[in-house]
Nucleic acid binder design. Structure first.
Length: 575
DNA sequence: GCCGTTTTCGGCCCGACTGTTTTCAGTCG
């Protein structure tokens, strides 16, 4: 079950799309789009807000607030239903086909009575598109190709795959003679949990060799567009890569522009306009004379707008510009702040590497403490026993001498049962240095039951960290239905940390929820949940989530010294 | 529809690329 904010976001977005399709005022449509994004990213649950409270959300005015309130009260949004009655749902779905927007979707429906993606594909094959004004031979080909792509990929790319691909491309473009700077930008630089495409920015006097180099990379399957400033290709894995080349003196402005987000850029541009300036990817200009003010570095561009540099993960128009103006930007937690990892596995359960290999790899990362937390017996398929667990503890203690600079912690990942109980009795649990507890079953239990079991787990004095709280797998399994606010309250009250699981398939909690949890005073543990030595590098992605949630080292227990962490782990002493 | 240090009315981010309507609309980011 999705969060109510997400449902409202989807409805408002649909309303905006239908306004566009029916030829309504474009500014009105944009206004609803903006409101949709604002609601989706709003940390507070809209269900807790009345019409007045809803209007406090930036971009939500009287009219939108009324529509949301109506939906919250009745489960319906009559204005939306009125538009739905005019346009079949398939017409809106056609907008998802690349090169088909609201205007063309309507033209296809009006002139050819096409009302679904399937019918569209059929019409192209039957060569009927030329009957509609504005559609030529190439249009049909593009549409068919777009439909095919939609069907085979359909989704966004996970952060690790996108990062690896982007780094590979940046290396290749950087090596081209004449290339003076190159980096990736876009949602990847902002560390969003998934990315739709990769934006690469480069500087060179002559863009031609760089564009050619991109199109000739071995893993490039297709060239989508090719121009002097922008070239787009699709990789063999179906990922779109846009390369933009600008003169070196415009690097800063271009990097701001292509890093986004769109909403952040709009805010910066609006500030520029108010100051008599104009901001584009080519620089910050005087609006009247057209003379360039600055554009060489991001620092300069922000400074000219009266702002300090803003870290990319914050650039979502979630209050970062206002915070920057007040001089209150958070000192974000960084990967180098991590002193340890509190959730990892070995081949004693479902990990791939031995205890020694995991510990050696962790030591090489420079950690000052490291916990091994293999699965507990209730996850029956892992065949854990008391004896095996105690034998591992012996083995781990025996390795202490080998890594004098890294404290070894013996832990476990407990299973939170349907009633909130965990695997072992208190006496046995007391023998562990650290206990992570996670939901691994009964994903379908109802909201009340899920909430109850997680609160009970927090209240267990031996549970230090709640692992992957919502159990979602990005693109594969949705989150469990749980009252997160109630769990956050319990976690803060009991001194139980909530994990930011850094596995790119999970990234659980997600950034909006982490931000919300922080307001309750919740502390977090950014863990790898490594099942192999290579996975010990995952926290770079979890750090992205933490940064997007505005966290500082104060919020993250595994940036603390062992002395301080040790106190936190004695949670029963708190009460 | 939203919003306000030029504004309660009149704006609303800006530019590249494509295909096709020989001068520009639509789409995209």
């Amino acid at each position: 079950m999705t969060r109510l904010n997400d449902q409202v976001q989807e409805l408002l977005q649909e309303y905006a799309d239908l306004i566009s399709i029916t030829g309504g005022d474009a500014f009105r449509a944009r206004s609803y789009e903006k409101a949709a994004r604002a609601v989706g990213g709003h940390p507070e649950d809209v269900a807790r807000l009345d019409a007045k409270g809803l209007q406090q959300i930036p971009g939500v005015g009287k009219s939108t607030a009324e529509k949301i309130a109506e939906y919250l009260a009745t489960g319906r949004m009559s204005a939306l239903e009125a538009l739905r009655a005019k346009i079949p749902p398939g017409v809106r779905e056609m907008m998802a086909v690349p090169s088909v927007g609201p205007k063309r979707a309507l033209a296809l429906y009006r002139d050819l009575d096409i009302a679904s993606v399937d019918q569209l594909a059929e019409a192209v094959r039957a060569d009927r598109l030329s009957e509609v004004a504005g559609f030529g031979e190439r249009s049909g080909e593009k549409i068919l190709h777009g439909i095919e792509l939609m069907r085979q990929s359909g989704g966004r790319t996970l952060l690790d795959a996108a990062t690896e691909q982007a780094e590979q491309i940046v290396r290749a473009i950087s090596a081209v003679p004449g290339c003076t700077r190159c980096a990736y930008a876009g949602s990847l630089r902002r560390m969003r949990e998934t990315v739709g495409d990769i934006d690469v920015l480069a500087t060179a006097e002559d863009s031609e060799p760089l564009m050619t180099a991109l199109t000739e990379l071995p893993y490039v399957a297709e060239v989508i567009v090719r121009g002097p400033t922008k070239t787009s290709v699709r990789t063999a894995k179906g990922l779109q890569v846009d390369l933009r080349v600008v003169p070196e003196e415009d690097w800063g402005a271009a990097l701001v522009y292509f890093t986004g987000s769109k909403a952040h850029n709009i805010k910066l541009r609006t500030m520029a306009v108010r100051a008599g300036l104009k901001l584009s990817e080519y620089g910050l200009f005087d609006a009247e004379s057209g003379e360039k003010v600055v554009s060489a570095t991001e620092d300069e561009v922000y400074a000219a707008l009266g702002l300090p540099w803003i870290a990319p993960p914050l650039r979502e128009d979630r209050g970062e510009v206002e915070a920057a103006l007040r001089g209150e930007l958070p000192d974000l937690v960084a990967e180098s702040d991590l002193r340890g990892d509190l959730h990892t596995h070995t081949d004693l359960t479902d990990g791939l590497a031995t205890l020694e290999d995991m510990i050696d790899t962790a030591a090489a990362r420079g950690y000052s403490y490291y916990a091994v937390t293999d699965h507990a017996p209730d996850l029956v398929m892992q065949r854990m026993t008391d004896e095996k667990m105690l034998a591992q503890r012996e083995q781990l203690r025996g390795l202490a001498d080998r890594h004098k600079r890294m404290r070894l912690l013996h832990g476990t990942e407990l299973n939170i049962g349907p009633d909130g109980g965990v695997d072992w009795p208190a006496e046995f649990l007391a023998g562990f240095d650290v206990c992570v507890a996670s939901v691994h079953s009964h994903f379908g239990a109802d909201r009340a039951a899920q909430t109850r079991r997680l609160i009970r787990a927090c209240e267990n004095p031996h549970v230090h960290v709640i692992g992957h709280l919502t159990t979602r797998r990005i693109g594969r399994r949705g989150p469990i239905d749980v009252d997160l606010d109630a769990v956050f309250e319990a976690a803060a009250r009991t001194g139980t940390a909530i994990e930011i699981n850094s596995s790119p398939q999970r990234l659980d909690l997600r950034d909006e929820d982490v931000q919300r949890a922080k307001r309750y005073g919740v502390k977090f543990s950014i863990d790898s949940d490594a099942h192999a030595t290579g996975h010990l590098a995952y926290p770079r992605y979890g750090i992205g989530t933490a940064q997007r949630a505005w966290l500082t080292t104060e919020d993250v227990i595994n940036t603390w010294t062992w002395q301080r962490l040790k106190k936190f782990l004695r949670k029963d002493a708190l009460r």
